[in-house]
Design a protein around this nucleic acid. Structure first.
Length: 534
RNA sequence: GCGGGUGUAGCUCAGUGGUAGAGCGCCACGUUGCCAACGUGGCUGUCGUGGGUUCAAGUCCCAUCACCCGCUCCA
């Protein structure tokens, strides 16, 4: 499937529009149209129902170590700036970058390493991107620059150890990591990956706040509130859906990498001893969720991260990925990450921003010997009344992208097939084979023709169904055309009132995927639709 | 941020300096008896945006915005 065709369909049928389109659009922002808003709502509602509202607190679900509770939360998008300092986002999202005019490459300012060297009467700073065997790389680059053979390496006079580019004031004598000439690096420029805003009408620098780059932190900072107010006991999860914002350098791939996006996140709190089991449970449970809603083919995969890939605080992470059509063959894009985060988050908000030291997480210290970012100082540990044990819970985080899931469902659903026309000749058809739970319109109601009382009966059925379902009434043009229009919108069922209805009160139900038609009594339509949408 | 490509009707696209086009869709009326292709009529455009060159610009030049591809980035 070519992505262009899906993008065109999304626009034509009102799934997705470019944001602010009449003013030329805005990079990285998208609007959901009349059909898109229903689809995305259905994705989110399916998630909330399956994970939270419909969760059985009493049962031990297949694969789970035991019963658990689920509860929800809806936090403010703007939180105290200290939240982001302790979570690590402030430092990580606050990068300085340098560009190379010659190689057109971009580097993190603080990650470029290099060493001063003098030869042939010239003193230059030889840079390499941080990595392995920096010394070796630097020497090779220096030899090459001065046009020396390896056996003449002693002509290179090193001045000091390998240091960061941040120690260099003037870049005119710097040999960039991929450059052949000196002085090709631009001055460092600040990249704010968090959206900055100001709280209060007169706000100055000290009133700076950030739009949240993830919903998770709102859950951590409310952990104690939920414990104290809801009688939940560990193990339990807190779920939240909502907008997040990241000032991506390169928004790309339709809605896949947007600057404003919606997340569906769970923070699941459990005893440290049980956390590996819960991690595996959530990984498999979340994968099965996508499969159940139609991403069943080879385009969906569950990928465990390799140890090198793991974040500094994580002891296990898996991605649920989808082979989006805009990616290169063999490449997958992330729909959801399931991370074992240990006690990193709760401890950070207690003690302050943490860093890894050996095998331990310790509070990162600033140059003044005090914590670089001070925590709340509140006790976020948990006391188990039954075992008389106090501990900081470990956290399993299934973090999903609502827009990415919506896009994946659209990509998977898009299908061009051939169906017979009135003469039995095969004609092209565009159909969205969306799972009935996700379909924006659940059913359409048609009078076969606009006479003999058919419209009256059809309208009555439409009104009855509309009370419970998003249904659509259409009496325009030939009925075949109406079926095709619904196919493009992904509507799974069509009910048609025809001549026979007038005699025996039965209607036809037409299936989007098989095109099969079946008669059923008018009075049973609502009941049947209920069953089909389950 | 860099390089390449693209931008014309709701959609897909034609239009190589001289009156703005086609197909599909959409709307109305008629027709209608189950899978888009019946008839008649109709609506649709600051040619992405802003400047410039020219008697004349959709077309040439400059800038800018957006989308696609490749770098870069992606806790």
């Amino acid at each position: 499937m070519e992505m262009d065709k899906l993008v065109a369909l999304c626009k034509r049928r009102g799934f997705l529009f470019q944001s602010s389109e009449i003013y030329g659009g805005l990079n990285g922002f998208w609007d959901y149209g009349p059909l898109g808003v229903e689809l995305k709502r259905n994705v989110k509602e399916a998630w909330w129902r399956d994970m939270v509202a419909g969760h059985d607190d009493l049962a031990t679900l297949p694969g789970a170590p035991g019963p658990y509770a689920m509860t929800g939360l809806d936090c403010a998008i703007i939180m105290h700036p200290q939240v982001w300092k302790c979570s690590g986002h402030y430092d990580l999202f606050h990068d300085y970058m340098v560009d190379c005019r010659e190689s057109k490459k971009r580097y993190r300012y603080d990650q470029v390493q290099g060493r001063w060297v003098e030869a042939k009467g010239q003193r230059i700073f030889v840079a390499v991107p941080s990595g392995e065997k920096e010394d070796e790389q630097i020497e090779q680059r220096a030899l090459k620059y001065f046009n020396l053979r390896a056996k003449h390496a002693e002509e290179l006079h090193w001045d000091g150890p390998v240091v960061s580019l941040t120690t260099v004031k003037d870049f005119s004598q710097v040999l960039g990591p991929d450059a052949k000439e000196l002085g090709t690096l631009t001055p460092p420029r600040e990249f704010n990956l968090m959206f900055k805003t100001t709280v209060g009408a007169l706000g100055g620098e000290e009133d700076v706040a950030f739009l949240r780059p993830e919903t998770a932190q709102g859950i951590f900072v409310n952990f104690k509130n939920v414990i104290d107010s809801s009688r939940v006991r560990i193990p339990f999860g807190i779920a939240q859906m909502g907008k997040s914002f990241r000032n991506e350098i390169t928004p790309r791939y339709f809605t896949f990498r947007s600057r404003e996006f919606e997340q569906m996140e769970i923070e699941f709190f459990c005893h440290p001893r049980q956390s590996p089991e819960w991690y595996r449970y959530w990984r498999d449970r979340r994968y099965a969720w996508y499969v159940g809603l139609g991403l069943a083919g080879e385009r969906l995969r569950l990928r465990d991260h390799s140890p090198e890939e793991l974040s500094h605080y994580s002891c296990g992470t898996a991605d649920i990925e989808y082979a989006f059509p805009f990616l290169a063959k063999g490449e997958f894009g992330e729909l959801e990450g399931i991370a074992h985060r240990g006690d990193f988050d709760l401890r950070s908000h207690m003690e302050g921003k943490l860093v890894r030291k050996g095998n331990e997480l310790v509070v990162e210290m600033g140059p003044d010997g005090k914590p670089r970012h001070k925590g709340s100082g509140k006790d976020l540990s948990y006391f188990d009344d039954q075992t008389r044990e106090r501990y900081i819970p470990h956290v399993i985080e299934p973090s999903a992208g609502a827009d990415r899931a919506t896009l994946a469902f659209l990509c998977e659903a898009y299908c061009e097939d051939k169906v017979p026309d009135e003469n039995g000749k095969l004609t092209e058809r565009v159909v969205l084979r969306l799972h009935p739970r996700l379909a924006p319109i659940k059913a359409a109601v048609f009078p076969l023709v606009n006479k003999d009382g058919m419209p009256e009966i059809a309208q009555k059925l439409y009104r009855e169904l509309k009370r419970e379902f998003n249904v659509f009434y259409d009496d325009k043009g030939a009925v075949g055309r109406r079926y095709r229009r619904q196919d493009e919108a992904g509507t799974p069922y069509c009910f048609t009132i025809d001549g026979q209805t007038l005699q025996d009160n039965t209607v036809t139900i037409r299936d989007r995927d098989t095109l099969k038609q079946e008669r059923l009594p008018l009075a049973e339509v609502a009941h049947r639709l209920h069953e089909l949408l389950r």
